[in-house]
Write a protein that binds this DNA or RNA. Structure first.
Lengths: 325, 325
DNA sequence: TAACCTCCTGACAACGTTGTCTAGGGGTGC
DNA sequence: GCACCCCTAGACAACGTTGTCAGGAGGTTA
């Protein structure tokens, strides 16, 4: 900017005014400055601007894994809202590691992001307190924070979705319904287990429940084991999209009624089509980021806790009767 | 930092030294400073640090659409390499819009990213010249830049992959092989058309080629039209993952041999399994970012142009003979 | 005891912006 | 012709950090 100023024969401040479109600059002078800017290929140093003004026009997004379609859909929605507000997105994957989540959040905060959107991996978020107190708003999405902090959250109706899935299978006549879920330490997995259990009532049998960290081989083995029981399941409820795919791959055409949590591309093209409880990742991202930008615009109201609905999409796999298997 | 300094009763610079782990600070003093840091919840302002040092430890990634599995896989790989080098990732989706690509790159540069990884949407990259001259390295991945600039590129063997696909179908006995591709303005689509055409030789028939911007309805209609020709195709080669899915959805079980460019999850679970020419999105991302970090480490050698291999994965759909349809 | 060295600490400038304040030039009103 | 005001422009400080350099305290050597 200094170079531009001397090239145009004006003061620093005048260049600053032109760059920022501030009023009170003679059009002739402004034109001369613009010419100098073009000639020198100058572009404003945002770091300095941030330092001076305090706002970075950057939002930090912490998700579990950007290459998971669920989270990348969520991320895309956040990105779009951010762009609409003139913000950029700093993003990072926690890989389900609380330590990494924390590190990402701290790094983002050190770079003075204006706000955070977090899919938490851990359940202790006391480390966020200083940042929140310093005025950096955070919105938790897909999973809530630990009890230490009270911030905006956007979740989907996990338990309700699970009840929906199990009720659907029960309507088709199933009484032995297995649940293949993620590690119970994960909020959504625990909630879905609750819904599953509630909808089963007296039919609940712990022998038909497998919950473990994503591990294709392990969950597949659990399912095989269940199928070998004297009173095997006639239907399966899978706790997330990855597990649904794992299960399909394990079954490989063996007929077993199936309802999966999370919709996925091609679910309709498989034979039979896969019945799912669909949530709306883009909706989660959109709502969460709109909440964040409302905070950034100055909303100081109490923390909001939103829940987005889920819906069951029947495609065939969930409508098979017990006698089909 | 100023507050920390006065709280600990030391000078600014001493706090700076402690924060940066610089030698030459009395352990007692350092401990006092650390206590003050904890008490005040201080975290270093990276903007100021960047301003002072000139390096942001940030890499910019411009891709087409973060929610596309191909690009999110690529993005994830870039992220991992960046993390390994202590860098954060600023990312943005161009949505196949050259204007937006340019805007993203400029915004990234204004924030002084240390380097750029770009999947270009446009073909004029003269706008990057000032940045390159200023020493910001860029690596183009999946598609090359326009002729105005000569930078590192990492592509996959598009034409070779297409030849592979068509040759595979020809071996199964097909002579009427349709090509459903993306807009010919997109580099990869054009290359794949070239490979398709080369492998067909005299069998090439423009009536069996559809190339258009991603548009489910349009491509589906083109395919339907081809199937209504007096001499219809007995096989289809689809130009990318999205189009493969579109085609599967259009065909909905109608038997027609199919080979798709790009592998996708569940391709093996469909009936028949979908034969694909698989490229390695994570590999593209990894190689590109390693190239970038080599530049950031000071490598000033001539621009490298790498090509990653593709491989054909036979799963059934590409092995059907013409008489099956 | 003087000279020197090491270890630790602090003062100060600088990075590139922008907010605030001041000032000159020219026009307008009386 | 004088007072006043508006328009434009520039000088200067400040944002929070780090690099450079200077200097004091204490120990060692001659």
């Amino acid at each position: 900017m200094k170079d531009v100023a001397s090239a145009a024969g004006v003061a620093l401040k005048t260049v600053s005014r032109v760059v920022n479109g501030e009023p009170g600059v003679n059009p002739t002078t402004a034109e001369r400055v613009r010419a100098a800017i073009d000639a020198l290929g100058y572009s404003r140093n945002e770091s300095a601007r941030v330092l001076r003004q305090g706002r970075t026009a950057t939002v930090g997004l912490v998700i579990e894994d950007i290459s998971d379609p669920f989270y990348s859909g969520l991320g895309r929605a956040v990105e779009q809202v951010a762009i609409a507000h003139g913000c950029l997105l700093l993003s990072g994957s926690s890989g389900e590691n609380p330590e990494r989540e924390r590190e990402l959040v701290r790094t983002f905060c050190a770079r003075r992001v204006d706000g955070l959107i977090v899919v938490p991996a851990g359940d202790d978020h006391s480390y966020l307190r200083p940042e929140l107190d310093a005025g950096t708003p955070a919105v938790f999405v897909d999973r809530p924070p630990g009890p230490e902090i009270d911030v905006d959250t956007v979740l989907c109706d996990n338990a309700g979705g699970a009840r929906l899935a199990v009720a659907h299978l029960r309507r088709a006549g199933h009484r032995r319904i297995a649940f293949l879920g993620d590690s119970p330490s994960i909020f959504t997995a625990a909630e879905r287990l609750k819904g599953y259990r509630a909808a089963l009532g007296g039919l609940f049998d712990p022998a038909l429940v497998s919950m473990r960290a994503p591990d294709l081989a392990g969950t597949g083995a659990d399912l095989e084991h269940m199928l070998g029981l004297p009173d095997p399941p006639t239907a399966v409820f899978t706790g997330n999209g990855r597990l649904t795919v794992t299960t399909l791959r394990t079954l490989r055409g063996r007929p077993l009624a199936l309802v999966g949590f999370d919709d996925f591309e091609l679910a309709d093209l498989l034979t039979p089509g896969v019945t799912v409880v669909a949530q709306d990742p883009a909706g989660l991202g959109r709502v969460a980021s709109e909440l964040l930008f409302r905070r950034l615009a100055g909303d100081r109201g109490p923390a909001q806790h939103l829940q987005l609905p889920v819906r069951l999409i029947a495609r065939g796999s969930g409508e098979q009767s017990p006698s089909d298997s």
